[in-house]
Write a protein that binds this DNA or RNA. Structure first.
Lengths: 338, 338
DNA sequence: TGCTGGCACTCGCACGGCGTGAGTGCCAAG
DNA sequence: CTTGGCACTCACGCCGTGCGAGTGCCAGCA
């Protein structure tokens, strides 16, 4: 177990390195932090910390920088999430307040988060699986062509074109629309399937094929079409990464373009509470020199999607975590209102 | 007027510089191209071209590189758009063929274009103004709350929440829905306003306020909500820009994040035919060292939106223009089919 | 008049040696 | 266990040099 002071030294190293982006030495440390000991002592502590793998030197006889393991210890034990100032909170609220629809909410959130953290922001659209049905609409576009429109409580709208096996009359359509809505409105997606299973039986034999087709399309939309979408922003902040550019930035940009990768990334995070993945903890290779801070958000008490930021492992964890948490809360609030 | 050979020299300079990314000298030129004259002659020609402002030397006694003006002359007079190979065409077609909805079409297009040109691709969603109405749906969510859903022939779906001035019955709603659709389905957006103007008169006095509200929301959606959306991709290709990184890439990433800037950029392009804006011809400062190749595309013969790529001024213009034009054609085709 | 080979000149760039200084590890004393 | 002292180590920046690609000019030739 590391002594109290050694942890303090680690904390100081992380803070200084995050601030200056330069390896930090024993002398500079004692000058900037009142540790109450001499540089020589700090050197001993540093040697111990290095032994344990919490810090490393880029070159012999240069200062130390934290390792992934060091950052991990820092966020787990040494860092308190920094709450935002109240002007900041107000700014967030005002900024999100003006949103007119779901796209706008997500768009504003992503810009806000990018600006606040000065890093790359990722916001997942509220997931379909956990939300509830607000309305199902059926439109007859042609005798044997129906459009299914699904509206969710988070304001998301999905539409599907359906080619029916047989012509389907207006009255049957209205009947199906009414029955469908009376059964599923207000229900969570996961609960829908058993509720509509027996619907075909209520119809004439000739219509049953179409009803089944519509139902299966609806279920597909609910389940399979839980293909999550997301929005990213603040990629320009990547230029602040480091001086050794192309090598660092390239794989990150590539990873960000692969929505699949990002979705997996967010998916791996805990469902509740904040998740911080540091450097090599990220499965995707391109993100090995970045950290991802993510958290779930939702309209009710429950999380329906996740948002977060991607930045260099050398980031201001307390500040970033504070911003991410605050934004998630406010977005949840906004979603609940609309 | 420049002699035939001098134009030929300019063409050779552009081609070589695009290929090697290095200033090109007289000797190298004569070696790689059979100009039939000696380096000394080429030197004289280069001096003349420099005099006219078509090329410049980065440092005294280094090779020449084309100026914006030089590229302009090149694309206007010296370059033929390079048609794609037929395997490439087939690949485009196959890749776009599988799209399931509008988002998917746009997403695939942007990835395709980025991959093909190895640059940043920008695709505008089909504009609302020029398309036609496929269906208007009205849903009663609460006694005085109506949702308006607009479906366009390009597959786009827009929804709006409407708070009614007075409760609005199901029958009135059905009535309005029927009348509305019979008048506007198949119409171009621009033609809709006069067609619905007198609709309120057909309703009871108590409903007129609501009908007016719905109509004005619809018109707003049609016109004001022509706020174009767009999708970008291939930002990772920016890393191939140059060696003097952060300075070059930063403003470009920033510009790309501002959808407004991009929309203006595409808006400035000609409505028909391909537009190439080179370096400082771009109004936005961050894009002064990039060129933008854009073209309109549409489902019918007419353009409904634009797409293009953003790359370094030092780009393969013939190839890029060929790819952009080909992709635009195929997308138009796909849109017409669906 | 226009093209060519020759020639002297320029200057960016890569290379190698050198001095500097921040930072380290070790040690002996408090 | 802490502290001051001390010798050692490199990364980094600076500078001078040589090289070579490229230029401009000029005189000769078709």
């Amino acid at each position: 177990m590391l002594s109290e002071r050694r942890l303090e030294v680690l904390r100081a190293i992380v803070q200084d390195y995050v601030g200056t982006e330069e390896p930090v030495g024993s002398k500079a440390l004692t000058e900037r932090h009142k540790l109450g000991v001499s540089p020589a002592t700090v050197r001993n502590d540093m040697a111990a910390l290095e032994e344990e793998g919490y810090i490393a030197q880029p070159h012999t006889s240069a200062g130390r920088i934290p390792t992934d393991k060091g950052y991990r210890l820092f966020v787990d034990k040494l860092a308190a999430v920094k709450p935002l100032s109240s002007p900041e909170r107000r700014a967030i609220h005002n900024f999100l307040e003006g949103a007119v629809d779901l796209d706008d909410v997500v768009g504003r959130t992503v810009r806000l988060l990018a600006q606040l953290t000065r890093q790359v922001a990722v916001v997942q659209y509220p997931s379909l699986t956990r939300s509830t049905v607000r309305h199902v609409e059926l439109l007859s576009l042609a005798p044997a062509r129906v459009m299914l429109v699904l509206i969710t409580d988070t304001g998301r709208v999905e539409q599907r074109m359906i080619d029916c096996p047989a012509p389907f009359g207006e009255t049957s359509l209205a009947d199906l629309r009414a029955r469908l809505n009376s059964r599923v409105v207000g229900r969570r997606f996961a609960d829908v399937p058993p509720l509509v299973q027996d619907l075909p039986e209520a119809f004439e034999a000739e219509d049953r094929g179409t009803v089944s087709t519509v139902l299966s399309t609806l279920l597909e939309t609910l389940v399979e079409e839980t293909e999550e979408r997301l929005m990213i922003g603040g990629t320009a902040n990547l230029t602040r990464f480091g001086h050794d550019f192309p090598l660092t930035i390239r794989p990150v940009l590539e990873a960000l373009e692969e929505q699949v990768v990002l979705l997996k990334l967010l998916g791996e995070a805990k469902d509740s509470g904040m998740t911080v993945r540091i450097g090599h903890e990220n499965a995707h290779e391109g993100l090995n020199s970045t950290s991802v801070v993510s958290v779930g958000y939702g309209s009710g008490g429950e999380a329906v999607a996740k948002l977060g930021v991607v930045g260099p492992t050398r980031m201001d964890y307390p500040g970033t975590m504070g911003a991410v948490r605050a934004v998630a809360r406010y977005v949840g609030q906004i979603l609940a209102e609309s």
